[in-house]
Structures are given as C-alpha cells and as structure tokens.
Amino acid sequence: MTVTIEDNEPQQSDPQPRELIVTLFGLYARAQSNWLPVAGLVRMMADLGVDGPAVRSSVSRLKRRDILISERHEGAVGYALSSSALEVIAEGDTRIFHRGRGTVEDGWIILVFSVPESERDRRHTLRTTLTRLGFGTVAPGVWIAPGRLARETREMLERKGLSAYAELFDGQHLAFGDLRSKVRRWWDLEGLTLQYAEFVRRHRPTLAEFGARAAPPEQAFAAYVPMLTEWRRLPYLDPGLPLSLLPAGWHGVTAEQLFNDLNDTLSGPAREHAVQVIHRRR
C-alpha cells in the first residue's frame, strides 16, 4: 500500500517543549545520576529552538504532574525524574528501541472491565491506560491486544491499582468473520498509516543528509531529539499487530526501519553534544 500525504491531510504535530524535556531526561539524565542542571537543560533546549520562558513554563507543568522534581547537586540547582516517571520511561525503552511484533499464533489477550458510575475517574484512567498499552476496542468494556502484551498489561494495571476492575483472558480467534477485517475495526489503522507516512516524510531527508557522512554532534542532536520524541508516540498506538493481519505494504515497517537507521546514525553524536553541553561551565 502506497500512502501519499497531501497538504490538506492531517499532519503530525511538532513536539511540544514539555515532550522534548521528557525525552532529554530519558536520554541523558538517567546516565547522569538522574539529574540535569537547570543551565544545561536550558542550553540543550535552546539548541532545539526553545527559549528560556517556554522551558520554565514546561518544567513547572512537569513538576505539577510529578514527572520532574527539584534537586540540588553540589549547590547547583537542577531537576530529576520522579520514581514513577523513571518506571514509565524504563518500560518505554523496550517499546521504543526494541519493539517486537506478534504473530497470529501468539493469540490474544481480552480485557473486560466494569467500573461503578461513582468512580468515573477510575474508568477514564483505565481507558487511558489501555489505549497507552495499544489495546483495540471490540465492544464497550471489551478490549483486545496481541498476546505478547499480557505481562506488561498485568503489571501496569496492578501498579495503577486498576486490577480490581478488570478481568484478563487469553485465547484464539476461533470463528465468525474475517480477522483481518475485524482488526481494521478494532484499531484505527488508517490513522496509524497516516502518522507513519508523515513520520517518513518528515525524517527521511535527515537520513539522506547524514546517512553517507558523519553527523556533526550539534546537528545530530538538533535532528535526533525531535525525531525520537515524535517516534515514541507511535509504538504505543501500534502494539505490534501481526503483519499477516495488516494491509499489504504496511507503512509501519518502513517507518520502523527509518527510525532504526536514524537511531544508529544520530544517537552517538547527539549524546556527545549533550554531554558537552551538560558539563559546560556557566
């Protein structure tokens, strides 16, 4: 399937400053004792085209959401990821950098949930969590995902205190209807295709530019961090559905290969630049 992104079709939005900040902490703070100095963060964000006021506003929002916490190291002011944010980012490493893809033989997990009307906030949290895990919707209150996500799903629901509202089953599709057609209904494959195509459109020129030569560290950094920030949304929308159930020429394969090539090409020099910036004196 060939997909063309026209000017009047939905475009993938540029990463927000707070998303870029989370990416920076995930990439570089964890290797620096889970801490970045304020000055280093502001300098890195400036290299990404984000000014100081936008950085401060975004950091304030991330602190209110318990993603970042203030810490001083040897008298220097800085920020660290909260313990809960560290857990989420560590879980995301596998999906983002080492994502697998299921097969029909892996089967499925089916989740059925019921939340009392008096706990509507829990229902919203549960739905948001299942969407983040990549579940598709079979019917109201009935969600489905590839079988390989069973452990991740169980651990996520237990950690969020949602397991009491859900029943989790594993099984196979036995009969009635074409499974390929059903997968198209359970997941928004058309929307995913457009997002994958847009990722390729936006970032294929970067690979063409740096694929044949060593990427200068500052340029690599400026290209790599936004690219990774955009990519990390996609593995949570596409749970690694079996290729045999997806449209021919599934654009996610092309996009994933592009991401892997860009990661191999840019991550090293980008880290070199980030470390220099973090340790630069005021």
Rank of each mutant, 00 (worst) to 15 (best):
R282N: 11
D261T: 05
A31S: 15
W250I: 08
L179S: 03
F169K: 08
S118G: 04
A31C: 10
R202M: 13
L24G: 02
S57F: 07
T131F: 02
V253F: 01
E158W: 06
R148P: 06
E87M: 10
R282Y: 09
L245S: 06
L207C: 00
R184T: 09
P146I: 11
W187G: 01
L20P: 08
T229G: 09
E209Q: 14
Q16P: 01
P37M: 10
V88Y: 01
L41H: 03
T128D: 14
F97Y: 14
T125D: 15
E167F: 13
T4Q: 11
M1P: 07
T265W: 00
P242D: 06
T129G: 01
I67R: 13
D264M: 08
H124W: 00
G191I: 10
A150G: 03
G268I: 10
P140M: 04
R72V: 08
L237A: 15
A164E: 15
W250K: 03
F210D: 04
P116R: 00
V50H: 04
Y28F: 15
Q12F: 11
S33Y: 09
H251I: 15
P226T: 07
A80K: 10
A208R: 14
T128W: 05
S163E: 14
R64N: 12
S83T: 13
T206A: 14
D47A: 15
D178W: 03
R127G: 07
Q16I: 05
G252N: 05
F176E: 13
L81S: 08
G141W: 03
G75T: 04
W250R: 00
L68M: 08
T2G: 10
T206R: 08
Q257E: 15
A166W: 04
R101Q: 13
G177I: 05
E105F: 12
L245G: 03
Q11H: 13
Q16G: 05
S60V: 07
L262D: 02
G40H: 06
G268H: 07
G100H: 06
G161L: 07
F199D: 05
A270E: 09
G92N: 15
G177L: 02
W35K: 02
T125F: 02
E167G: 10
A46V: 09
Q172L: 11
P235G: 06
V77Q: 14
R282L: 12
G240E: 08
T137E: 15
Q195W: 00
R159L: 10
Q219W: 03
T94I: 12
K182W: 06
I5G: 00
T153P: 02
E152I: 11
A270R: 10
V115K: 01
P235M: 08
R65L: 14
Q12C: 09
D93A: 12
W231G: 07
